[in-house]
Nucleic acid binder design. Structure first.
Lengths: 234, 234
DNA sequence: CGTACCGTTGAGGTGAGTCAAAGTAAGTGG
DNA sequence: CCACTTACTTTGACTCACCTCAACGGTACG
């Protein structure tokens, strides 16, 4: 703790400590990597597969707010906040996870400003359920929420710009519903509608999108008829 | 940047630098402390008055997600995330604000692990629009959302436990609506209902709550009839 | 005593939730 | 390879909370 070391030296010894302390673990579909209410034990890094993060509120209502893909990190929020996990991480597919013990990570963060900066950025940007504003706002029709979800999902995939593109969803309908804070039935209806209008054709978990621009247009379509709403002045 | 100093020394010289660089500013009701889309310039600390943080989505729909009270901080998210402000801060009352330049703050964060920890905690815990889950979930009836808002507001106030208590709201109906992601009309109706049932009596901006326990009971009332919903297994 | 907000009330329409049931895909075991 | 189970998905009918629109009552302030 006492003295601090130069950033540049980071890569060497301490990185080895971090790697040495890492625990590798494999999970089957449905397994929980951690559960809401658990105390944080460290940082989780997903190496392969997909994981869904969902929160169960006091109404016993489950709302998913993030799909974690390979290379992404989870559990940072409760680690740094020193709070119990606010969400449950559940494997959507079989997957491999690296676990870095909390104290080791926190130590490194204390010692290396550049390392710390990296997490600052992540924490500040990861608004937890941030996409919520787009995906879960109830003033937004489910159809539009679904389109937005598709666009979010497509960011991680590489897709032919301009032409048609096929997207493989890592989630089932039920989870889509949880992500959009709605019910599977409503999702099904929206999917059908999008299919009829040839905006996005769903077939099981693969989605064909004839024209991405149509999606974009749809995603920002102003549904609210009247002018912008309220607050303080204006 | 190079060498780092011991934590304990923090209080002395560098704190003075921080205080010296601080800019004090007064705002009138309706003024914007910063606006959505602005580049971050530093950290804002509210000394007196109240401020509302709201976000305008691509549908030009405004949703408030936080009421900032005296002593609280704002703007940290965009500062550390190095992102444009995702929200607008607007004075609900006349208020005094301290502004700490970003580079000075970031410098101190780099140098003092304990200082950094403090912000880590704040960032990790401040889920931005996280109360959203409770306050804006559309599966929750407006009446319950309103009760939750009252409870949130009461945390900052000191209130007689057990007995009746009077709460002074810093916001008008329109803002309450924005906080609950609904319309002023719906808020009015919910308020009337709560009044009729003597759960919370609104008179302008002051609210009388005969029995807090009733509020608590109401806030966690399970409205969803069927069992917990969805996701992966179970 | 208007003007201008803010807040309330009423009437009407609708998106989406609920319930129930049928259809489909995916494992499992013989 | 086919019955059989189980889980997931879709459909339809019904209901309701909330949004919208529109009008009216209050209060503050010039």
């Amino acid at each position: 703790m006492g003295g601090h070391v130069r950033d540049s030296e980071m890569a060497s010894l301490d990185m080895q400590v971090l790697e040495k302390s890492m625990i590798f673990r494999s999970h089957a579909r449905g397994d929980r990597i951690f559960s809401q209410g658990d105390d944080p034990t460290g940082l989780f890094c997903l190496r392969s597969g997909h994981v869904l993060l969902w929160h169960k509120d006091s109404f016993r209502y489950k709302t998913a707010f993030r799909v974690v893909g390979p290379g992404e990190i989870m559990g940072h929020r409760s680690l740094f906040g020193d709070d119990a996990h606010a969400a449950t991480a559940q494997a959507l597919t079989s997957c491999d996870v690296c676990h870095y013990p909390g104290d080791v990570v926190l130590n490194l963060v204390d010692q290396y400003p550049s390392f710390a900066r990296c997490f600052f950025r992540m924490l500040a940007r990861d608004r937890g359920p941030r996409d919520a504003l787009v995906l879960r706002g109830q003033h937004i029709p489910i159809r539009v929420r679904l389109v937005n979800l598709l666009l979010v999902m497509m960011k991680s995939e590489h897709c032919d710009k301009g032409g048609a593109c096929i997207l493989q969803l890592p989630v089932m309908r039920r989870d889509i519903a949880a992500l959009l804070a709605t019910r599977p039935e409503s999702v099904a209806r929206a999917i059908k509608q999008l299919g009829n209008e040839r905006v996005a054709i769903f077939k099981g978990r693969s989605v064909t999108i004839p024209n991405i621009d149509v999606l974009y247009k749809e995603s920002s379509r102003v549904v609210v008829p009247t002018e912008a709403r309220s607050s303080v002045t204006t």
